[in-house]
């Protein structure tokens, strides 16, 4: 069976990271299995972890009264999610729910953020990597916002 450090080593997110940092992060990680329907994170609850999905699908959702949970985006094998632990007030802004059985590595963000305060090199490395993920999600969200497949959208400039 692979150790936590091996698992992290294999993941592109941690590629090129200092061995000692990686060992420290591995020490903050544990394997978790979520059943379909389980909430992995809930809006407005403390965000002390982030997750690396080993297998399964996670839905990022927002609950709307009178409607239900709107799925904003799904995340899949090898995706990393959860960055609310990085910034005050360390609360989740959306729900994350397992769509099917999800095997994930849960990493202790609380422990990491304390470590990052003292080990700024590690903090910078982690932030850099999270910034990349946040950018990708933002780009995807912007594309979704454009609703490019919709019908009958009048042009902004209809021409003369």
């Amino acid at each position: 069976m692979k150790s936590m450090a091996d698992l992290l080593h294999e993941h592109p997110f941690f590629k090129g990271m200092d061995e000692s940092h990686l060992d420290f992060i591995a020490g903050c990680g544990e394997n978790h299995i979520y059943n379909a329907g389980d909430y992995i994170a809930r809006e407005n609850e403390p965000a002390d972890h982030f997750y690396l999905i080993r297998a399964g699908q996670v839905a990022v959702e927002c609950f709307v009264p009178n409607y239900g949970a709107i799925c904003l985006q799904t995340l899949h094998d090898n995706d990393i999610f959860g960055w609310s632990w990085l910034f005050p007030p360390y609360m989740w802004t959306f729900d994350a729910r397992a769509v099917d059985e999800v095997h994930a590595i849960r990493l202790d963000g609380k422990c990491l953020r304390e470590k990052c305060e003292t080990d700024t090199a590690m903090g910078a490395e982690l932030l850099k990597r999270f910034a990349r993920i946040v950018t990708q999600r933002l780009q995807a969200t912007r594309m979704q916002l454009m609703d490019i497949y919709s019908q009958q959208r009048p042009p902004l400039d209809p021409g003369q």
């Binding site: 009958q152 959208r153 009048p154 042009p155 400039d157 209809p158 021409g159 003369q160």
Partner: peptide
């Protein structure tokens, strides 16, 4: 130079 000339699904490609 007309607007309809470059019209595709909903609008002109060359709008100006």
């Amino acid at each position: 130079f007309t607007g309809e000339f470059s019209y595709i699904s909903g609008g002109a490609v060359r709008a100006d």
